[in-house]
């Protein structure tokens, strides 16, 4: 089946699309009610987030836009210490999309939601003119346990910065397919429930969590250093990097510090808990390559800085990503 404008008409074709693909993939008691809105149980402090997903190509080594759309939103909830519970999803589908592709995307979405322990409780589909593209918006709801207070403003001098694994894998995967470079790099798109819950359940005093997405580690940490008004100093030699990603960056003149991930996070924890926290992350799924990459000290003149101590003992000052981070050759 090829998606046409009729599938967005609201009539029989729309029902067929929803029944055939989404209702089958996301099957659960709340969604199956097919009401105008989902009514779900839950109380306490609620975390809410939303994110829209556009990616070319739609399917890439290690995942597809469906998996991505769950990971991105689930991870955003987790980064506030929330337990993710419910997702909504809105599909904007261009006419010309093959329904088999749509099925694969919906299936990946359902599998990833199951992995992350969330239910997809509401959804919407629109069809627009175009050429076979898919865009997805997801919103997520989670519940924050009492006593948990994780925020971008809470990084303090004396903290250390942990990274849960190798930098840049997702970005390198996506860019590789666009630049005719073949490699075995796979996207790291993954829900990070296990490592976050391990930290919280084992009494680690987590000050801040942040998933490393667009803009890469440097952008994320520079933003955090600004929010918390601290100096973060990274050790260049401890930055975790897959050699294939390192050379991929070398080929295209890119800096791994600005390459995005979709299944990595940083955690700021007090120095005396660093070893315990690292051990917990490493034991959790997707956290095997976690390392300590830097330390936090007082900010200078009330503002934040991100520094890297380089291999030859130099200091490099980093800013957030400027522009698009396009490959440079020349």
């Amino acid at each position: 089946m090829i998606i046409t404008m009729a599938h967005g008409s609201g009539g029989a074709a729309t029902s067929e699309l929803i029944d055939e693909i989404f209702a089958k993939a996301f099957d659960n008691d709340v969604l199956n009610e097919m009401e105008d809105s989902a009514v779900v149980p839950g109380s306490g402090r609620i975390a809410v987030t939303t994110d829209s997903f556009v990616v070319t190509p739609l399917e890439y080594p290690g995942g597809n836009i469906g998996r991505l759309a769950v990971c991105g939103t689930v991870n955003d909830l987790l980064m506030r210490g929330a337990t993710p519970k419910y997702l909504t999803c809105g599909y904007i589908i261009q006419e010309g999309t093959d329904s088999e592709l749509l099925k694969r995307v919906a299936t990946a979405m359902a599998e990833t939601a199951a992995e992350a322990g969330v239910k997809i409780v509401a959804g919407d589909t629109k069809v627009i003119e175009g050429n076979g593209g898919i865009m997805i918006n997801t919103a997520g709801v989670g519940f924050v346990p009492d006593g948990v207070d994780i925020s971008a403003t809470k990084i303090a001098p004396g903290d250390v910065i942990l990274v849960s694994g190798n930098l840049g894998d997702h970005h390198a995967t996506i860019l590789g397919s666009r630049m005719n470079i073949t490699n075995s790099i796979e996207s790291d798109n993954a829900p990070l429930n296990e490592m976050v819950m391990a930290l919280l359940d084992n009494g680690i005093d987590v000050h801040c969590l942040r998933d490393v997405t667009r803009g890469g580690l440097a952008t994320v940490l520079k933003e955090l250093s600004d929010s918390s008004k601290v100096t973060i100093t990274l050790e260049e030699e401890s930055l975790p990097l897959n050699p294939a990603v390192r050379d991929f960056c070398g080929l295209l003149g890119l800096d791994p510090l600005y390459m995005g991930n979709e299944g990595k996070m940083i955690a700021a924890v007090p120095k005396d808990q660093a070893e315990a926290a690292l051990a917990l992350i490493r034991k959790a799924k997707y956290g095997e390559a976690a390392v300590l990459v830097g330390e936090v000290t007082e900010g200078v003149d009330g503002h934040g800085d991100l520094l890297v101590r380089t291999a030859i003992g130099g200091i490099r000052q980093l800013d957030v990503l400027q522009g698009e981070g396009l490959p440079r050759i020349c």
Partner: peptide, 9 residues
């Protein structure tokens, strides 16, 4: 040169 931080060394 910027990446190496050599100017501050």
């Amino acid at each position: 040169i910027a990446k190496s931080g050599i100017a501050r060394v």
